[in-house]
C-alpha cells in the first residue's frame, strides 16, 4: 500500500514537472526586457507642468505635511505676479516609502507618482532629488488640468474671472 503510494506520488509529480516544460516561462530576462507596471504603480515621484508649460507646484507644503516619513522639503517663494512657487524642492528617496499620500494631498496635481521603478544609485546621496531632477516636461496623468483656470490669483486670467470664482470684493466699499 505504502509502496503503491510512493510510486504514484513520484510518477504524478514527474508528470507535473514534464508538463511544465511546455509552459510559457514565467520569468523575463530583466535588464534586456523590462516589465511595464500598471499605470497606478507608485514609484519615482515627479513634479509636473501645466498645459502652458509652467510649474504646477505652488509650494503649499501639503505634500510635506502629509508625508509620514518627512522626506519632502521645500522653500516657498513668490513671483512678481503674486504666484507662489518652490524656490527649491527636495525629495529624499532613500527615506520615501512610496505610499502616495503626497500625490493624493496635492491640490494642483503637481506631484505625481510614476511607474518608473528603477531607483537604484551607488551613492545614497544621489537619491536626494532636487527640483531639477524632479521636474518633467509634461502634465503627467492629467495633462489638461490647470489649477489657475479654476481658482487663484491672476496668473491665467485676471483675478476673479476663473470658472469657479467670484470677483474680489472691494473691502473699502463694504464699510458702513
Amino acid at each position: 500500500m505504502t509502496l503503491w503510494r510512493s510510486i504514484r506520488g513520484t510518477l504524478a509529480a514527474l508528470g507535473v514537472t514534464l508538463k511544465a516544460i511546455f509552459r510559457r516561462p514565467a520569468t523575463i530576462p530583466y535588464p534586456e526586457v523590462k516589465r511595464v507596471p500598471a499605470p497606478r504603480y507608485r514609484a519615482r515621484i515627479v513634479l509636473t507642468r501645466d498645459p502652458r508649460g509652467g510649474e504646477r507646484c505652488v509650494a503649499c507644503h501639503l505634500c510635506s505635511a502629509a508625508c509620514p516619513v518627512n522626506c519632502i522639503s521645500m522653500q516657498a517663494a513668490e513671483g512678481p505676479d503674486g504666484r507662489r512657487y518652490a524656490a527649491w524642492f527636495r525629495i529624499n528617496f532613500s527615506r520615501c516609502i512610496f505610499c502616495g499620500l503626497c500625490a493624493e494631498a496635492c491640490p494642483t496635481l503637481a506631484i505625481q507618482m510614476t511607474p518608473d521603478y528603477e531607483l537604484c544609485r551607488r551613492d545614497p546621496l544621489e537619491l536626494v532629488f532636487e527640483k531639477e531632477d524632479l521636474l518633467v516636461e509634461d502634465g503627467g496623468k492629467d495633462r489638461d488640468y490647470d489649477f489657475y483656470r479654476h481658482a487663484g490669483i491672476g496668473v491665467a486670467q485676471a483675478r476673479g474671472e476663473g470658472s469657479e470664482e467670484e470677483p474680489p470684493a472691494d473691502v473699502r466699499s463694504l464699510l458702513p
Binding site: 505504502t2 503510494r5 504514484r8 506520488g9 513520484t10 504524478a12 509529480a13 508528470g15 507535473v16 514537472t17
Partner: peptide, 8 residues
C-alpha cells in the same frame, strides 16, 4: 497535490 501533496 499531485506534485507534492501525495509525495512520500
Amino acid at each position: 497535490h499531485s506534485l507534492v501533496g501525495g509525495n512520500e
